[in-house]
Every structure is written in structure tokens, then in C-alpha cells.
């Protein structure tokens, strides 16, 4: 479903990621783990086409995306929930979700039911300015907005960062449902090892822009965590 072959990514002329290889099958969930500043967000941005230059090859469903624009990748089925959410604060909740629907070609801009079914709070506040939502509600909106693109693959950058515990649990259950029930392939960066382990099928650990370890979620043991993630 998502394949990265020897991907090196640059900001300007500086390489940030070095020779990343990932092979993710349909419906799988991959968790990207690593300390702050090791390149997790850059990996997400690289897949989304938001870095300056990429060497190597990125493909979705066998279709090469390396030279495609971000907009074309979104249309091809990549949904993106960025770190810090980057919600349009002066837009209404409705307008924010409608933005996502623009990735669906040839379909009338209409909020998909699943976005409101998963997050009933949003249904009741469609005309509220997004800037007035709390951190957890903003994260729900960011996920709903990405879902509105009808993604095959959903990239979530730190989806539980800075969110109160009860909302973290809600988001966790939503992600389980999206992945296990609806079959959306997930790639997420996550600081909470417990969440990473219970949600994902696979994990990769990054350090200084390189993939240093990978395995199945059962292989994400305390030893691995201590070896690669202890400060």
C-alpha cells in the first residue's frame, strides 16, 4: 500500500532523512517512534510531499508518487493530520471539514457522515469558529478533516500530543475503529509507547534521520525501548 525505497529527504540542500525503507500493506498500522528531533515529522512531511527535495522512491498502491505534488498525493489517497493540528482557526468547523472533501475529485463538497458519526461534538458545533475549540476538540476536527479526504492511508503526526487523558482514549478508540473496522492504513508517530504497541502492527524507530530498528508490535519490548529510546 505504502512503500518507501531508499528515501532521502532534504530541507533546502540539507539532508534530514537518510535512506528510509518502509513497506506497509493495506490495513496495517505502522508506528514511528523516536526521541524529539530525530526526523519523525520530516518523515510524515516527506511522504506528504512537503519537503524541498526527495531522493529514492515513494509509491502508493504501486503508483509512484515521488515527483507528485502534495495536492496530487492527497487526491491519490493520502490523508494528513499534522503535528500541532494546523487547524484554520478563523474557519468554522464546517469549513474546516469541507476543506478535506476537496481531495475527492468530481464529488460535490459535502461533509461525509463518518466524520460527524465519529465525533458527535463536531456535528453539534458545525458553525462554531474552530479557534474556539479546546485542544482535544481541535484534534478531533483535524482527524475528521483528514477523513473527509477519503484516505486510503492516514498519516497522523503525534495525534495524542498535549491532549487530556479522556480525549486521548477517545482518539485511540477512533483510530482502532478506522484501522481495524474500516480498514484504513495508518502511519502514526507516537510518544506513548503503550498506545504505539497496542494500536500498531509494526513499528520503526528513528534516530538522527535514520531508521535504526524495526519490527512487529510484539517485538517492541522494554529492552528495545531502553536501548533506543532512553535519554
Amino acid at each position: 500500500m505504502l512503500r518507501l525505497d531508499d528515501v532521502t529527504s532534504y530541507y533546502g540542500k540539507t539532508p534530514i532523512l537518510h535512506g528510509i525503507n518502509i513497506d506497509l500493506k493495506k490495513g496495517e498500522c505502522l508506528c514511528v517512534i523516536g526521541r524529539n528531533g530525530v526526523g519523525k515529522t520530516t518523515l510524515m512531511q516527506t511522504v506528504m510531499g512537503l519537503t524541498t527535495r526527495i531522493d529514492g522512491k515513494i509509491s502508493i498502491d504501486g503508483e509512484e508518487m515521488t515527483r507528485r505534488s502534495t495536492a496530487e498525493r492527497a487526491i491519490a489517497g493520502l490523508g494528513y493530520v499534522p503535528q500541532g493540528r494546523r487547524i484554520f482557526g478563523k474557519f468554522t468547523v464546517r469549513e474546516n471539514i469541507l476543506l478535506g472533501t476537496f481531495a475527492r475529485q468530481g464529488i460535490k463538497a459535502q461533509i461525509p457522515e463518518i466524520c460527524l458519526e465519529l465525533f458527535p461534538y463536531l456535528r453539534d458545533n458545525l458553525d462554531k469558529k474552530a479557534g474556539f475549540l479546546s485542544g482535544g476538540q481541535l484534534q478531533q476536527l483535524a482527524i475528521a478533516r483528514a477523513l473527509a479526504t477519503d484516505p486510503k492511508i492516514l498519516l497522523l503526526d503525534e495525534p495524542t500530543e498535549g491532549i487530556q487523558p479522556n480525549i486521548v482514549e477517545e482518539i485511540y478508540h477512533t483510530l482502532v475503529r478506522l484501522n481495524k473496522n474500516i480498514g484504513i492504513t495508518l502511519v502514526l508517530t507516537e510518544q506513548h509507547i503503550k498506545i504505539a504497541k497496542s494500536l500498531s502492527d509494526k513499528f520503526i524507530i528513528m534516530d538522527t534521520g535514520r531508521l535504526v530498528h524495526s519490527g512487529t508490535s510484539e517485538e517492541l519490548t522494554d529492552d528495545v525501548v531502553n536501548t533506543y529510546l532512553s535519554i
Binding site: 506528504m48 510531499g49 512537503l50 505534488s69 502534495t70 495536492a71 496530487e72 498525493r73 492527497a74 487526491i75 493520502l78 494528513y80 499534522p82 494546523r86 484554520f88 478563523k90 474557519f91 469549513e95 469541507l98 476543506l99 478535506g100 476537496f102 481531495a103 475527492r104 475529485q105 463538497a109 478533516r145 479526504t149
Partner: peptide
């Protein structure tokens, strides 16, 4: 909806493009 596209590009072109907006 065209206006939403334009305002999104004004506010954050990268995010706008991640919703398929050229």
C-alpha cells in the same frame, strides 16, 4: 467552496495542498 479554497491557501498553503488544493 472556491472561497474556502482561496482563504485556505492564504492562511496555510501547505495544509491547503494536503487537501488536494492546487
Amino acid at each position: 467552496t472556491w472561497g474556502i479554497r482561496v482563504r485556505a491557501v492564504m492562511a496555510d498553503p501547505d495544509m491547503a495542498s494536503s487537501f488536494g488544493i492546487d
